[in-house]
């Protein structure tokens, strides 16, 4: 792995992510959006999510759904850093026999909950999973769903935002990566779309790990929570 140094437990650090990402080549179109999610996905896996690469199907795990399946390089790099997949799996991503495609397929990758790529699917599924946990009276696991600001164009998200708010799905957290991709923008701010449906919200610098972490771990009794993570404009 060249000049990379892994820690004693075999995990790689944030500083290694760049190297891990350079193992993946060939997805020029999506490479920029991949990096827009890097710090959020790293912070989630490093200090927010209760997930364990040795028990990816643990019923008590937090569920993370990358709804924005575009540009999954950062996601794959973090999964490799946290030992869900071997780092040498990254180098031939997108090839016929690789489990790693330009859009992820949950059936092929350990610890990946769903397959995404067509936009606007993750959040409705996340609402269903949260309701499932509620029916099972499992109050501890959280459901985290990452979407893009352009992905919010898809109406299915707004169906989900409304219902999650009305049902007070406290175990649900949505992270919106805001990099100015939405063609027609979101006048009044992205957070306001959620707030009007009763969600709690935080808008943070999507490159600041401490900010991201505190926004994602903030308590929000009785309501779902959205974190708008702002990064450089596309």
């Amino acid at each position: 792995m060249g000049n990379m140094t892994s820690s004693e437990n075999g995990e790689y650090s944030y500083e290694d992510l760049g190297h891990l990402m350079t193992l993946m080549t060939g997805d020029e179109k999506h490479s920029y959006s991949a990096t827009s999610t890097l710090d959020v996905v790293w912070t989630l896996y490093d200090s927010v999510l209760n997930v364990d690469h040795e028990r990816p199907d643990d019923p008590d795990r937090d569920r993370f759904l990358l709804s924005k399946g575009h540009g999954p390089m950062a996601y794959y790099a973090v999964l490799a850093a946290k030992k869900f997949i071997p780092a040498d799996m990254l180098s031939d991503w997108g090839s016929y026999d690789s489990p790693l495609g330009y859009h992820p397929d949950g059936a092929l990758i350990r610890g990946v909950e769903i397959g995404t790529g067509s936009l606007g699917h993750g959040l409705p599924i996340a609402v269903g999973m949260t309701l499932g946990l509620r029916i099972k009276k499992m109050r501890t696991p959280g459901v985290f769903c990452l979407v893009g600001d352009a992905e919010l164009d898809e109406g299915s998200n707004h169906e989900a935002i409304a219902l999650a708010g009305r049902l007070g799905l406290e175990q649900l957290t949505v992270i919106v990566i805001e990099n100015g991709s939405a063609s027609h923008g979101w006048p009044g701010g992205i957070a306001s779309r959620f707030e009007i449906e009763g969600w709690s919200s935080a808008t943070v610098n999507g490159r600041d790990h401490e900010d991201i972490k505190s926004a994602l771990t903030q308590r929000h009794p009785g309501v779902p929570h959205v974190v708008v993570a702002q990064v450089e404009k596309k």
Binding site: I125, I135, K136, G155, E159
Partner: peptide, 26 residues
């Protein structure tokens, strides 16, 4: 009451929610 989820007139959500429930073993 727990076993009925009415999404309102939101059919995309209805199917997505059902899939999420199936993922949780329902």
């Amino acid at each position: 009451p727990d076993r009925f989820i009415n999404c309102g007139i939101r059919e995309q959500l209805m199917v997505g929610v059902a899939a999420g429930l199936a993922k949780e073993g329902f």
